[in-house]
């Protein structure tokens, strides 16, 4: 009884953190698919979402229902500026230099956030209270349910967007062959901008819904960005279920590793798996299913 209770708790904790990783991983995957670059500033979008919400609620005194959309809009504006100022001006840059630029951009955003706000950690109240919920002998916070729900909605929406809308299809076309896409009349640069808009909005949404659980500060983006990146890699950079499964697998392995093996190796377990996947299956665990679906 005792052990089985523990196992369910590990599983639930793993799913809860995994869903967060998945949501952030999706942002990586969307930009990668449209532009071929890995946007290492994705973690900063997550941070900005949380920090904007905190300051809109505490200093501007807005109702959370107003503050959340405002924070998403503000972060999206930052995403647009980032694309306009840092990515677009470089006409024929290689993906590698663009990746390096995103790293530079993330340091810049973090630095500005540190100066504009402060170096402290801030907490948000839970969206629906802080009373734990008990399920099968394990406990979850109400906020976890929000995270699950938002993750499912976001995946559903992105699936619909990429499969059934012209813009979504155009973005996919750019990811397969941007030159061919531009030859048939798709404005590739507009699609790149689109991808930054979507992923910064998604990143900030992730940052907002996790802030009540994990708290937020100017530097939360680094670690959480790396974990989201891992999730996306495990999922083969797909903008669908692959990344979600990647996130969940990572979360569960971390929590099982911490609970059953040793918490000292928790991060090591995650990164060893990342390395193994990069060595053995660089296309990700589920890449086959991806190509079939397309």
């Amino acid at each position: 009884m005792q052990i089985s209770d523990q196992l369910t708790q590990y599983l639930f904790s793993g799913f809860a953190t995994g869903a967060i990783y998945a949501l952030i991983g999706l942002g990586f995957a969307i930009i990668y698919n449209a532009t071929g670059i890995i946007n290492f500033a994705q973690g900063e979008f997550v941070m900005l979402g949380g920090m904007f919400t905190v300051s809109l609620i505490t200093t501007a005194g807005l109702h959370p229902g107003v503050a959340v959309p405002c924070a998403i809009i503000l972060t999206t504006v930052v995403g647009i500026l980032f694309e306009r100022l840092a990515i677009r001006p470089l006409k024929s840059a290689t993906p590698l230099s663009l990746v390096i630029i995103t790293i530079g951009g993330s340091i810049l955003i973090r630095g500005i956030a540190m100066l504009v706000w402060d170096k402290d950690t801030h907490a948000l109240p839970g969206f629906s209270g802080d009373e734990p919920i008990e399920i099968f002998g394990a406990t979850l916070m109400p906020q976890h349910l929000w995270i699950f729900a938002v993750t499912i909605v976001v995946i559903g929406m992105s699936k619909l967007f990429f499969s059934y809308t012209i813009s979504g299809k155009a973005m996919r076309a750019c990811s397969y062959n941007s030159r061919a896409a531009s030859l048939i009349g798709i404005d590739v640069r507009r699609m790149v901008l689109f991808s930054f808009i979507i992923s910064s909005a998604m990143g900030s949404l992730a940052g907002i819904i996790i802030a009540p659980l994990t708290m937020t500060s100017y530097d939360v983006g680094i670690m959480i960005g790396i974990k989201g990146f891992c999730a996306a890699i495990i999922g083969g950079m797909s903008s669908g279920f692959g990344t979600v499964l990647g996130g969940l697998i990572l979360g569960v392995l971390e929590s099982m590793g911490a609970g059953l093996v040793s918490s000292g190796y928790k991060d090591a377990i995650a990164f060893v798996i990342l390395l193994l996947i990069l060595f053995i299956r660089p296309q990700g665990l589920f890449k086959k299913a991806e190509t079939e679906r397309v």
Binding site: Q9, Y10, S13, G14, A16, T17, I20, T139, I210, L213, T214, M215, V220, I222, M223, I224, E254, S255, M256, A258, G259, S263, K266
Partner: peptide, 8 residues
């Protein structure tokens, strides 16, 4: 930077 210590 961990955000969940429920496993431990």
């Amino acid at each position: 930077k961990d955000t969940d210590m429920t496993p431990q």
